[in-house]
Design a protein around this nucleic acid. Structure first.
Length: 347
DNA sequence: AAACCGGGGAT
DNA sequence: ATCCCAGGTTT
């Protein structure tokens, strides 16, 4: 009995029933793999189903607008994933006649596709025997071979990639890779793995040495930078003043209420009207606080307060801003904290 | 190699 | 309060 056959036997009995496992269509595998990057299965399920109802084929997606695509990604995070996926399917239409290339090397060249995703698509959709090294796989193999190197280092990933090539079956490479995901999700979990349920304990060096709880090794994360912001809710009739964020950087191209980062100890009372006047050519008077929230990103923590603003007068808006009817709030892709405020204030 | 890029569920 | 998730791109 090999490690692979042991794992596959376990998988036949324990594979999760997931929406993107109904077939191995390359477009569907692609979408699911991009959505799943740094994102939990439970969070992806509903997004994936809604996505496939709206963009059922690669061609449908390729002909859709970036703004609509971002709206369907709203809330999933890492929005460059959606923009790159759109660029990717358009490239497949232009260069590959609308058919996803059937090998990892060509898939790897598509925007938003790295080593892991190329391996996942090639193995699951096209039965190519290539590894797909994600966080689950790094964790499982660091334990199987008792690897104490920092798993975030490139060299460690290369080492594990090589180990997988040695135990990867020629048949069912897609099931093998997906079995590792399910094992990592249900059994070989971070912290205290459920070794009593694991089909691979007889191959596991960490289990033999009883060090599974301290593997894998990775450096501690840096704490997010704290930023204070003020934002203005400007209402003109039944419309709200909104603007689109720049095309690069945090929450690129997402929409928000006009806002500014505050210097330490500065009052928003003067800053916010001045900003709205300078950037958006609107005259407002600052009112009371309407909503406050703290929103933590991976590398930044926003402390943002939304102020009621009385609209007095104004000229034409710049192209990146508009008056948005309250009834159309959900038709735009929003910066997360601003959607929280909109939902609380205009429900 | 290190920094950037979101959001939330589990512990 | 901390961890970390079916990672990729940019600097």
């Amino acid at each position: 009995m090999t490690l692979a056959s042991q794992l596959l036997t376990w998988y036949y009995e324990n594979a999760r029933d997931l929406p993107w496992r109904q077939n191995n269509d390359a477009y569907k595998v692609w979408v699911s793999e991009i959505m799943l990057q740094q994102t939990r299965v439970e969070a992806v399920k509903n997004y994936y189903t809604r996505w496939m109802e709206r963009f059922p084929t690669l061609d449908t997606l390729a002909r859709s607008s970036e703004q609509e695509v971002l709206t369907y990604w709203q809330g999933l995070g890492y929005y460059s994933r959606a923009r790159n996926l759109l660029l990717g399917v358009r490239e497949v239409c232009a260069r590959y006649d609308g058919k996803v290339p059937d090998n990892a090397a060509e898939i790897l060249r598509l925007p938003g596709v790295g080593e892991y995703t190329a391996g996942a698509i090639a193995s699951i959709a096209y039965n190519r025997p290539v590894p797909a090294v994600d966080g689950n796989v790094l964790r499982i193999f660091s334990r199987l071979f008792c690897i104490e190197d920092d798993i975030t280092k490139q060299g460690t990933k290369r080492k594990i990639h090589g180990l997988i090539q040695n135990c990867m079956p020629k048949e069912q490479p897609g099931n093998f890779n997906q079995a590792l995901m399910d094992l990592g999700s249900a059994i070989c979990i971070p912290g205290h793995p459920r070794c009593s349920l694991c089909p691979l304990t007889k191959y596991c060096e960490a289990y033999a040495r009883e060090v599974q709880d301290v593997l894998p090794v990775r450096p501690p994360r840096k704490q997010p930078l704290h930023v204070t912001l003020a934002s203005g809710i400007v209402k003109n009739g039944e419309s709200l003043l909104v603007r689109q964020r720049p095309s690069t950087g945090l929450l690129a191209k997402m929409w928000e209420f006009p806002s500014i980062e505050l210097e330490k100890n500065s009052a928003p009372s003067a800053m916010l009207p001045a900003l709205i006047k300078a950037d958006l050519a609107q005259e407002i008077v600052l009112g009371q606080k309407l909503f406050h929230c703290i929103h933590t990103f991976s590398h930044r923590k926003w402390d943002i307060t939304f102020f009621d603003c009385r609209w007095l007068d104004g000229g034409a808006l710049p192209p990146f801003a508009r008056w948005l009817p309250i009834s159309e709030i959900t038709s735009l892709p929003w910066a997360g904290p601003h959607l929280k405020a909109a939902a609380a204030l205009f429900k």
